[in-house]
Simulated scan of single mutants.
Amino acid sequence: MKYAKQEGVNLSYQMVTFPNYALEDHWNDGEIQKLIAHTTFDFIILQQGPSSQPDGREMLINYGNKLDSISQSNQSKLCYFMVWPSLKNYHTFDGVIKNHQDAAAINNAILLPVGQVWKAHFYSTKNFQYYGPDGFHPSLEGSKTAAKVIVNSLLLHH
């Protein structure tokens, strides 16, 4: 929110989050459909774990499509928050990037390429400071970078 304010953007948002939930879990729970159908948002941002494997890819694409169908009724634009793998699974980074890119392209959604920016930073600096102590969740620096990528990407589409 701090970065958005610096860019002159006023944010109003609602989050639906639960630990270890995939898009399929949100769909099966049913609350997300009600929220999207009865509230007008400029953007609906989907975030799922790294999704480098075929089942994660399928969920990104299929449940993104289902949620997009609902969001279109309120003229909301679907977005994919591209995440990153854990340091332990760094070798899956290209799969994470590809599956998020494909899901966004297939569903005509906006890609918020945080994972891609993180990987480019790691490649050029060999510095992994965007990861927090657990090697998966972001550090403060990683969170700030994610916020900048998201806000800048959304500003391009608003």
Rank of each mutant, 00 (worst) to 15 (best):
A4I: 14
E7M: 15
G8Y: 04
V9N: 11
Q14T: 06
Q14Y: 02
M15T: 09
V16H: 02
P19V: 01
N20R: 03
Y21Q: 08
E24Y: 00
N28E: 12
E31Y: 08
Q33R: 13
Q33D: 10
T39V: 09
D42I: 14
I44W: 13
I45H: 02
I45V: 10
P50V: 00
P50R: 10
S52Y: 10
Q53V: 04
D55M: 10
G56Y: 12
E58A: 13
M59P: 00
I61A: 02
Y63D: 09
G64P: 05
N65K: 08
K66C: 13
K66M: 14
Q72L: 15
Q72N: 10
Q72E: 14
S73M: 13
Y80K: 00
Y80I: 00
M82Y: 00
M82H: 00
V83H: 03
V83C: 02
W84Q: 11
W84D: 11
S86V: 12
G95P: 13
K98V: 01
A105V: 06
N108E: 15
N108W: 03
L111T: 12
L112V: 13
G115E: 08
G115L: 05
Q116R: 06
K119Y: 13
A120N: 07
A120L: 08
F122K: 00
Y123F: 07
T125V: 09
T125D: 05
T125H: 10
K126L: 14
F128Q: 13
Q129C: 03
Y130E: 04
D134K: 12
D134S: 09
G135P: 03
F136W: 06
P138Q: 11
E141Y: 05
G142I: 01
G142N: 06
S143A: 15
S143R: 09
T145S: 04
A146Q: 01
A147L: 03
V149I: 05
I150K: 01
S153A: 01
L154H: 04
L154T: 05
